[in-house]
Write a protein that binds this DNA or RNA. Structure first.
Lengths: 115, 115
DNA sequence: GAACGTACTATCCACTATGGATATATCTAT
DNA sequence: ATAGATATATCCATAGTGGATAGTACGTTC
Protein backbone atom coordinates (compact mmCIF):
# COMPACT_ATOMS: atom_id res chain seq x y z
CA UNK A 1 0.00 0.00 0.00
CA UNK A 2 1.49 3.24 -1.18
CA UNK A 3 0.40 6.02 1.08
CA UNK A 4 -0.54 8.80 -1.30
CA UNK A 5 -3.23 10.75 0.46
CA UNK A 6 -5.40 13.25 -1.36
CA UNK A 7 -4.18 13.68 -4.91
CA UNK A 8 -4.42 17.39 -5.66
CA UNK A 9 -7.16 18.55 -8.01
CA UNK A 10 -6.85 20.71 -11.09
CA UNK A 11 -5.91 23.44 -11.50
CA UNK A 12 -2.53 22.53 -10.09
CA UNK A 13 -0.78 25.17 -8.03
CA UNK A 14 1.91 26.73 -10.20
CA UNK A 15 4.86 25.54 -8.07
CA UNK A 16 3.61 21.94 -8.22
CA UNK A 17 3.16 22.11 -11.97
CA UNK A 18 6.59 23.61 -12.57
CA UNK A 19 8.35 21.15 -10.31
CA UNK A 20 6.68 18.23 -12.06
CA UNK A 21 7.54 19.65 -15.46
CA UNK A 22 11.17 20.14 -14.48
CA UNK A 23 11.41 16.56 -13.28
CA UNK A 24 10.03 15.14 -16.52
CA UNK A 25 13.33 16.17 -18.05
CA UNK A 26 15.61 14.53 -15.50
CA UNK A 27 15.85 13.61 -11.86
CA UNK A 28 17.04 16.69 -9.99
CA UNK A 29 17.69 17.94 -6.47
CA UNK A 30 15.94 20.89 -4.81
CA UNK A 31 18.01 23.80 -6.00
CA UNK A 32 18.55 22.09 -9.32
CA UNK A 33 14.81 22.07 -9.82
CA UNK A 34 14.56 25.75 -8.99
CA UNK A 35 17.35 26.53 -11.46
CA UNK A 36 15.77 24.44 -14.20
CA UNK A 37 12.38 26.10 -13.66
CA UNK A 38 13.87 29.56 -13.70
CA UNK A 39 15.86 28.82 -16.83
CA UNK A 40 13.10 27.12 -18.80
CA UNK A 41 10.65 29.93 -18.05
CA UNK A 42 13.10 32.71 -18.87
CA UNK A 43 13.11 33.90 -15.30
CA UNK A 44 9.35 34.41 -14.98
CA UNK A 45 9.05 31.71 -12.32
CA UNK A 46 11.28 32.11 -9.29
CA UNK A 47 10.50 29.50 -6.55
CA UNK A 48 11.90 30.77 -3.28
CA UNK A 49 13.28 28.26 -0.78
CA UNK A 50 10.17 28.42 1.35
CA UNK A 51 7.87 27.35 -1.46
CA UNK A 52 10.42 24.93 -2.89
CA UNK A 53 11.13 22.68 0.07
CA UNK A 54 7.66 22.87 1.52
CA UNK A 55 6.17 21.86 -1.80
CA UNK A 56 8.66 19.05 -2.40
CA UNK A 57 7.88 17.55 0.97
CA UNK A 58 4.17 17.73 0.32
CA UNK A 59 4.54 16.24 -3.14
CA UNK A 60 6.42 13.27 -1.76
CA UNK A 61 3.72 12.84 0.85
CA UNK A 62 0.93 12.62 -1.72
CA UNK A 63 2.96 10.48 -4.09
CA UNK A 64 3.60 12.81 -7.02
CA UNK A 65 7.37 12.50 -6.71
CA UNK A 66 9.80 10.12 -5.04
CA UNK A 67 13.21 10.52 -3.59
CA UNK A 68 15.59 8.65 -5.87
CA UNK A 69 19.22 7.56 -5.73
CA UNK A 70 21.67 10.35 -6.40
CA UNK A 71 23.94 10.13 -9.43
CA UNK A 72 27.53 8.99 -8.90
CA UNK A 73 29.81 11.57 -7.35
CA UNK A 74 26.97 13.93 -6.51
CA UNK A 75 27.17 16.29 -3.57
CA UNK A 76 25.83 14.08 -0.75
CA UNK A 77 23.84 16.96 0.70
CA UNK A 78 21.60 16.92 -2.32
CA UNK A 79 18.35 14.99 -2.32
CA UNK A 80 17.26 13.88 -5.76
CA UNK A 81 13.67 13.50 -6.84
CA UNK A 82 11.90 11.76 -9.70
CA UNK A 83 8.32 11.88 -10.99
CA UNK A 84 6.01 9.02 -10.12
CA UNK A 85 3.42 7.61 -12.46
CA UNK A 86 0.74 9.58 -10.61
CA UNK A 87 2.82 12.72 -11.01
CA UNK A 88 3.15 12.13 -14.71
CA UNK A 89 -0.58 11.67 -15.11
CA UNK A 90 -1.25 14.85 -13.19
CA UNK A 91 1.22 17.07 -15.03
CA UNK A 92 -0.23 15.70 -18.21
CA UNK A 93 -3.75 16.65 -17.19
CA UNK A 94 -2.67 20.12 -16.17
CA UNK A 95 -0.79 20.65 -19.42
CA UNK A 96 -3.92 19.67 -21.31
CA UNK A 97 -5.92 22.16 -19.29
CA UNK A 98 -3.45 24.92 -20.15
CA UNK A 99 -3.55 23.91 -23.78
CA UNK A 100 -7.30 24.37 -23.81
CA UNK A 101 -6.88 27.85 -22.35
CA UNK A 102 -4.41 28.70 -25.08
CA UNK A 103 -6.89 27.43 -27.65
CA UNK A 104 -9.54 29.65 -26.10
CA UNK A 105 -7.23 32.63 -26.33
CA UNK A 106 -6.42 31.82 -29.93
CA UNK A 107 -10.11 31.60 -30.80
CA UNK A 108 -10.53 35.10 -29.48
CA UNK A 109 -7.56 36.50 -31.33
CA UNK A 110 -5.63 37.53 -28.28
CA UNK A 111 -2.54 35.49 -29.07
CA UNK A 112 0.39 37.46 -30.50
CA UNK A 113 1.38 36.62 -34.08
CA UNK A 114 3.23 33.39 -34.55
CA UNK A 115 2.47 31.93 -31.15
CA UNK B 1 -4.69 61.21 -17.89
CA UNK B 2 -5.81 57.69 -17.27
CA UNK B 3 -4.99 56.69 -13.74
CA UNK B 4 -3.74 53.15 -14.09
CA UNK B 5 -1.36 52.57 -11.23
CA UNK B 6 0.98 49.57 -11.20
CA UNK B 7 0.19 47.30 -14.13
CA UNK B 8 0.39 43.75 -12.79
CA UNK B 9 3.36 41.64 -13.83
CA UNK B 10 3.36 38.17 -15.33
CA UNK B 11 2.38 35.60 -14.38
CA UNK B 12 -1.14 36.97 -14.08
CA UNK B 13 -3.20 35.74 -11.18
CA UNK B 14 -5.65 33.18 -12.56
CA UNK B 15 -8.80 35.19 -11.73
CA UNK B 16 -7.42 38.23 -13.57
CA UNK B 17 -6.53 36.16 -16.60
CA UNK B 18 -9.89 34.45 -16.76
CA UNK B 19 -11.85 37.67 -16.33
CA UNK B 20 -9.88 39.31 -19.11
CA UNK B 21 -10.36 36.32 -21.37
CA UNK B 22 -14.11 36.27 -20.72
CA UNK B 23 -14.37 39.95 -21.58
CA UNK B 24 -12.57 39.54 -24.89
CA UNK B 25 -15.69 37.74 -26.05
CA UNK B 26 -18.19 40.38 -25.01
CA UNK B 27 -18.86 43.05 -22.42
CA UNK B 28 -20.35 41.34 -19.40
CA UNK B 29 -21.50 42.06 -15.85
CA UNK B 30 -20.06 40.46 -12.71
CA UNK B 31 -22.05 37.26 -12.46
CA UNK B 32 -22.13 37.01 -16.23
CA UNK B 33 -18.35 36.90 -16.20
CA UNK B 34 -18.32 34.18 -13.57
CA UNK B 35 -20.81 32.16 -15.59
CA UNK B 36 -18.83 32.57 -18.82
CA UNK B 37 -15.61 31.55 -17.08
CA UNK B 38 -17.19 28.52 -15.51
CA UNK B 39 -18.74 27.49 -18.79
CA UNK B 40 -15.71 28.00 -20.99
CA UNK B 41 -13.46 26.08 -18.61
CA UNK B 42 -15.90 23.20 -18.17
CA UNK B 43 -16.35 24.03 -14.53
CA UNK B 44 -12.70 23.88 -13.51
CA UNK B 45 -12.63 27.59 -12.64
CA UNK B 46 -15.21 28.72 -10.13
CA UNK B 47 -14.72 32.40 -9.06
CA UNK B 48 -16.55 32.94 -5.81
CA UNK B 49 -18.14 36.32 -5.15
CA UNK B 50 -15.28 37.41 -2.90
CA UNK B 51 -12.64 36.95 -5.56
CA UNK B 52 -14.92 38.17 -8.32
CA UNK B 53 -15.90 41.60 -7.07
CA UNK B 54 -12.65 42.30 -5.31
CA UNK B 55 -10.73 41.52 -8.48
CA UNK B 56 -13.04 43.52 -10.74
CA UNK B 57 -12.62 46.59 -8.57
CA UNK B 58 -8.86 46.22 -8.57
CA UNK B 59 -8.76 45.69 -12.33
CA UNK B 60 -10.71 48.88 -12.93
CA UNK B 61 -8.32 50.69 -10.61
CA UNK B 62 -5.24 49.64 -12.56
CA UNK B 63 -6.89 50.20 -15.92
CA UNK B 64 -7.26 46.65 -17.27
CA UNK B 65 -11.02 46.94 -17.63
CA UNK B 66 -13.56 49.77 -17.73
CA UNK B 67 -17.14 50.06 -16.70
CA UNK B 68 -19.16 50.41 -19.89
CA UNK B 69 -22.75 51.28 -20.75
CA UNK B 70 -25.20 48.48 -20.17
CA UNK B 71 -27.09 47.02 -23.14
CA UNK B 72 -30.68 48.15 -23.68
CA UNK B 73 -33.19 46.67 -21.28
CA UNK B 74 -30.56 45.16 -19.03
CA UNK B 75 -31.19 44.67 -15.36
CA UNK B 76 -30.11 48.05 -13.96
CA UNK B 77 -28.38 46.43 -11.01
CA UNK B 78 -25.80 44.96 -13.32
CA UNK B 79 -22.53 46.72 -13.94
CA UNK B 80 -21.01 45.92 -17.31
CA UNK B 81 -17.29 45.81 -17.99
CA UNK B 82 -15.12 45.88 -21.09
CA UNK B 83 -11.42 45.24 -21.69
CA UNK B 84 -9.14 48.21 -22.15
CA UNK B 85 -6.24 48.30 -24.57
CA UNK B 86 -3.87 47.67 -21.65
CA UNK B 87 -5.98 44.70 -20.60
CA UNK B 88 -5.85 43.27 -24.09
CA UNK B 89 -2.08 43.60 -24.21
CA UNK B 90 -1.76 41.90 -20.85
CA UNK B 91 -4.04 38.96 -21.55
CA UNK B 92 -2.15 38.53 -24.78
CA UNK B 93 1.18 38.37 -22.98
CA UNK B 94 -0.15 35.89 -20.46
CA UNK B 95 -1.63 33.68 -23.16
CA UNK B 96 1.74 33.66 -24.87
CA UNK B 97 3.39 32.64 -21.62
CA UNK B 98 0.95 29.77 -21.22
CA UNK B 99 1.54 28.74 -24.81
CA UNK B 100 5.25 28.46 -24.12
CA UNK B 101 4.51 26.23 -21.11
CA UNK B 102 2.38 24.01 -23.30
CA UNK B 103 5.19 23.85 -25.84
CA UNK B 104 7.56 22.87 -23.04
CA UNK B 105 5.19 20.10 -21.96
CA UNK B 106 4.86 18.90 -25.53
CA UNK B 107 8.63 18.77 -25.92
CA UNK B 108 8.76 16.48 -22.93
CA UNK B 109 6.00 14.23 -24.14
CA UNK B 110 3.67 14.86 -21.26
CA UNK B 111 0.78 16.08 -23.38
CA UNK B 112 -2.00 13.54 -23.93
CA UNK B 113 -2.51 12.36 -27.51
CA UNK B 114 -4.16 14.84 -29.81
CA UNK B 115 -3.78 17.89 -27.60
C1' DG C 1 -50.17 45.42 -5.19
C1' DA C 2 -48.09 42.56 -1.52
C1' DA C 3 -45.30 38.99 -0.57
C1' DC C 4 -41.92 35.74 -1.82
C1' DG C 5 -38.10 33.91 -3.98
C1' DT C 6 -34.20 35.07 -6.77
C1' DA C 7 -30.41 37.82 -8.92
C1' DC C 8 -26.88 41.02 -8.12
C1' DT C 9 -23.28 43.69 -6.01
C1' DA C 10 -20.51 44.24 -2.08
C1' DT C 11 -17.90 43.48 2.15
C1' DC C 12 -16.10 40.48 5.85
C1' DC C 13 -13.53 36.78 7.72
C1' DA C 14 -11.12 32.50 8.18
C1' DC C 15 -8.01 29.82 5.83
C1' DT C 16 -4.38 28.78 2.51
C1' DA C 17 -0.27 29.77 -0.14
C1' DT C 18 3.75 32.35 -1.12
C1' DG C 19 8.38 33.82 -0.71
C1' DG C 20 11.94 36.22 1.93
C1' DA C 21 14.71 35.77 6.20
C1' DT C 22 17.01 32.93 8.99
C1' DA C 23 19.35 28.68 10.81
C1' DT C 24 22.35 24.90 10.28
C1' DA C 25 25.28 21.82 8.05
C1' DT C 26 28.56 20.58 4.50
C1' DC C 27 31.03 21.12 0.40
C1' DT C 28 35.02 23.39 -2.33
C1' DA C 29 38.87 26.31 -2.96
C1' DT C 30 42.68 28.85 -1.49
C1' DA D 1 42.40 26.10 8.45
C1' DT D 2 39.58 29.64 6.94
C1' DA D 3 36.28 31.67 3.83
C1' DG D 4 32.74 31.50 0.83
C1' DA D 5 29.39 29.08 -1.64
C1' DT D 6 25.91 25.41 -1.77
C1' DA D 7 22.15 22.87 0.14
C1' DT D 8 18.22 21.62 2.97
C1' DA D 9 14.92 23.11 6.19
C1' DT D 10 11.93 25.97 9.07
C1' DC D 11 9.80 30.42 10.43
C1' DC D 12 7.18 34.43 9.77
C1' DA D 13 4.90 38.24 7.63
C1' DT D 14 2.16 39.13 3.82
C1' DA D 15 -0.91 38.29 0.04
C1' DG D 16 -4.66 35.85 -2.15
C1' DT D 17 -8.74 32.90 -2.12
C1' DG D 18 -13.38 31.71 -1.58
C1' DG D 19 -17.30 30.97 1.50
C1' DA D 20 -20.55 33.48 4.54
C1' DT D 21 -23.12 37.26 5.16
C1' DA D 22 -25.52 41.58 4.14
C1' DG D 23 -28.39 44.58 1.66
C1' DT D 24 -30.90 46.02 -2.24
C1' DA D 25 -33.67 45.58 -6.26
C1' DC D 26 -35.94 42.65 -9.63
C1' DG D 27 -39.62 39.45 -11.31
C1' DT D 28 -43.42 36.48 -10.45
C1' DT D 29 -47.36 34.71 -8.43
C1' DC D 30 -51.39 35.07 -5.99
Amino acid sequence: MTHHDATPALPLRPPVFHILLALTRADLHGLGIAAEVEHSTDGTIDLGPGTLYRTLKEMVRVGLIDEVDAPEAADPRRKYYGVTEAGRRLVSAEAARLASLVRLARDRDVLPDGV
